[in-house]
Simulated scan of single mutants.
Amino acid sequence: MPPADSADSAGGPGPGRPAGGRSRGGPLRDCLDGLRMAGGTLTAVPVAAPRVDRAAAGWAMGLAPLVGAALGAAAAVVLAASVLAGLPGFLSAVLAVGALALLTRGLHLDGLADLADGLGSGRPAEGALEIMRRSDIGPFGVITLVLVLLLQTAALGAIADSSPAAAAAALVAASATGRLAITWACTPRVPSARPEGLGAFVAGTVPYWGAGAATGAVLSVSALAGLAHGGAFALSCALAAAAGLAAAALLLARALRRTGGITGDTLGALSETATTAALLVTAGAAA
């Protein structure tokens, strides 16, 4: 994760352009460095980023859905292995969702709990942000975590009972959608809530064309993954991705009104919200 003291002010340059203006190594190097940064920031995999600047950060946030799809595929392997071992759908889903949490160090879930505590406090922006900074989890955070994890496992388990292949496709689509929500939260006109931290470092780094391209890629991958369960389910997976993004947009609007911008916790909360909504839609389609 980028260090807080290296973050620039929000609303800066997009992919391929560092804070000073020009790219340091060209678009290809920026892309590769951004991909490594995305892996190191969004997963528990120890990936060393050769450079940490806003140019690389823009690519990292733009490529976040690719990392999400890889995480979903890894969790799908756990799910498939559990089903083949004879475990029922719900228990297989618990193991798959647990694998996702392990692969991300629980950072997105932690962000969800922190944002829930901040928004649930009813305090003004500064007070809510102060609550989000704390390392402990309050009652709003606990309740939100329990509900979200129950929804994710129950939805995924229901799909697995219908078709393990459909459940694997749903995992890939939902995980990619969750990270796509992060991509859109890093587009211009979405400010940072603080002058430092991850939110300030990545705010405004993804241009709209980059977010649009990522959206098209996620919709395509979701539909292709869903083909494992038929054409109708492929369409449902694409619709689930759209629904997940819409749910994240509603939460982002709420967070911006209450805190004035994004933080690292906000990004994590958006990811889990979009993932959950996408799984719920695919569960309904599979049923």
Rank of each mutant, 00 (worst) to 15 (best):
F140N: 12
G39I: 07
A70S: 13
L95Q: 10
G199F: 05
A238K: 02
G231C: 08
V218F: 03
A214N: 02
V206E: 06
P191G: 11
P191C: 10
R22C: 12
S236E: 07
A60R: 04
A232P: 12
Q152A: 12
T41S: 15
L252W: 01
L109G: 09
L149I: 14
A76H: 04
A174R: 03
A80V: 14
L103Y: 00
L95F: 13
L219S: 05
A274E: 01
L102K: 13
G86T: 09
L180R: 01
L100V: 13
A155C: 14
L63D: 04
G122E: 10
S6K: 13
R29E: 10
A234E: 01
R22G: 14
G34D: 06
G20R: 10
G34F: 01
L103T: 07
T276M: 12
A232L: 15
A38R: 02
P191D: 08
G62N: 07
P65F: 00
T215R: 06
A285R: 05
V202S: 06
V218I: 12
G58R: 03
A69T: 08
D161Q: 12
S9F: 09
G89H: 05
G111E: 04
V281K: 04
S9I: 12
D136K: 10
V47W: 10
T282K: 06
G26T: 08
G199R: 01
P207H: 03
G226F: 01
S23A: 15
E130Q: 13
L224A: 13
P2S: 11
A56Q: 06
D8S: 15
A269D: 07
D136V: 15
G268Y: 02
R133Q: 15
E196P: 11
L42N: 06
V83P: 04
L235Q: 05
T43E: 09
A170T: 07
G199E: 01
P18L: 09
T215N: 05
V97S: 12
T187W: 01
F140G: 11
A278L: 11
G25F: 05
A158I: 07
L119T: 06
G122V: 11
A55Q: 07
L239W: 02
G268T: 09
S192H: 05
A113Y: 00
A76D: 07
L95G: 13
V281T: 09
G12Y: 04
P88R: 06
A193C: 14
S23F: 04
R258M: 12
R258H: 14
T144A: 15
A248P: 09
A277N: 10
M132I: 15
R179S: 08
L267R: 03
P50W: 00
E126A: 15
T215C: 13
L129W: 02
P13T: 10
A277G: 12
G122P: 14
L71F: 06
L279W: 04
P65K: 04
A234H: 02
A99T: 13
A56M: 09
S135P: 11
H108S: 13
T263D: 07
L219G: 03
G244F: 00
I131H: 02
V221Y: 00
A101Y: 00
A213R: 09
I182Y: 00
T205V: 15
L109N: 05
W209R: 14
L219W: 02
L235N: 03
F233Q: 02
L100P: 07
